[in-house]
């Protein structure tokens, strides 16, 4: 019993203190970035840990001028939204077919789809550049939307499939009796029923598209360049510009980190392909 008493003492004081310490430690780099974004460039590079300073919004106000932020942000929003929509548009019917009309090959098809995710991007980048330049799509949003959709399609289908599997088949069958056709079934019955799952899949795919850094950086130069490209382009030790670099970084990750807070659970499903519940 002594052990139980001991562990409950740890539970009352030790656990919360330690847990908060770990949480704050992991969050600290983000906090530090946000804090620095409110410093003038001169304050930001003082070689001391400056906690009290006169905050300024200049770094954010000058973001457009210093980095042309809004053009990159617009590209990020457009490509991520369109890619998410397209992925869902192709993914929902596919997952519907696999969940409600499985054949003997369904399992293998799903596994094969997953395996396309494991192809190292670096191995197929140069053929893609060659093809894209050949058909004149290099550095266009069309190309980026296509690539983002294709790299995320397997994850989307997997997530949707695991959600759809939970829906009793009878409900879908009942629709058939009423003479609803397949499109009607998806639109009138499936989508309203699985709305939560579909929304969280879309949210997660959007996050992945937004953060994608390999294809988007290497398949664009200016016209379709996203925020990943903007940040990687300013990777050089900017030295005197920590303030403005922090502001543009905060603006690039802020919305996504907040979105991420709302889909922690889906993240587990989406990234482990339903293997951890």
């Amino acid at each position: 019993m002594a052990i139980v008493a001991q562990s409950s003492k740890f539970g009352t004081y030790g656990r919360p203190i330690l847990a908060w310490a770990v949480g704050l430690l992991f969050f600290f780099p983000i906090f530090y970035m946000v804090m620095t974004s409110f410093k003038t460039d001169a304050d930001a590079v003082k070689p001391e840990f400056l906690f009290f300073f006169t905050p300024t919004l200049d770094n954010y106000l000058n973001m457009a001028e210093n980095y042309d932020y809004w053009r990159f942000a617009k590209n990020s929003v457009i490509t991520a939204v369109l890619a998410t929509v397209f992925t869902m548009f192709v993914g929902i019917p596919a997952a519907y077919a696999m969940a409600f009309n499985p054949s003997r090959a369904t399992k293998d098809v799903l596994m094969w789809m997953l395996s396309t995710k494991m192809l190292p991007a670096a191995a197929v980048l140069y053929p893609m550049i060659y093809l894209a330049k050949g058909i004149g799509l290099y550095d266009t949003k069309v190309l980026i939307v296509t690539v983002l959709s294709l790299i995320n399609l397997p994850i989307a289908i997997w997530m949707l499939f695991t959600y759809f599997k939970e829906i009793p088949k009878d409900i879908i069958e009942a629709g058939k009796m009423d003479g609803v056709n397949t499109w009607g079934e998806i639109k009138e019955i499936l989508v309203p029923l699985a709305w939560g799952g579909i929304a969280s899949t879309a949210l997660l795919i959007f996050i992945f598209c937004w953060n994608e850094a390999y294809w988007t950086v290497r398949l664009t130069t200016i016209d379709a360049a996203t925020l990943s490209k903007l940040i990687e382009g300013n990777r050089a030790p900017e030295g005197l510009f920590f303030g403005r670099l922090s502001a543009v970084s905060t603006a690039a990750v802020g919305p996504i980190v907040v979105l991420g807070w709302f889909c922690q659970k889906q993240l587990v499903q989406g990234l482990t392909f339903g293997a951890v519940k």
């Binding site: 780099p29 620095t36 300013n234 990750v253 980190v257």
Partner: peptide
């Protein structure tokens, strides 16, 4: 607090760590 770093885009992660930390 703990999950937040996972959603930071890789380029920002690298720029933040190598320069500011």
């Amino acid at each position: 607090l703990l999950i937040s770093p996972f959603f930071v885009m890789p380029a920002v992660n690298a720029v933040l760590w190598i320069n500011m930390i």
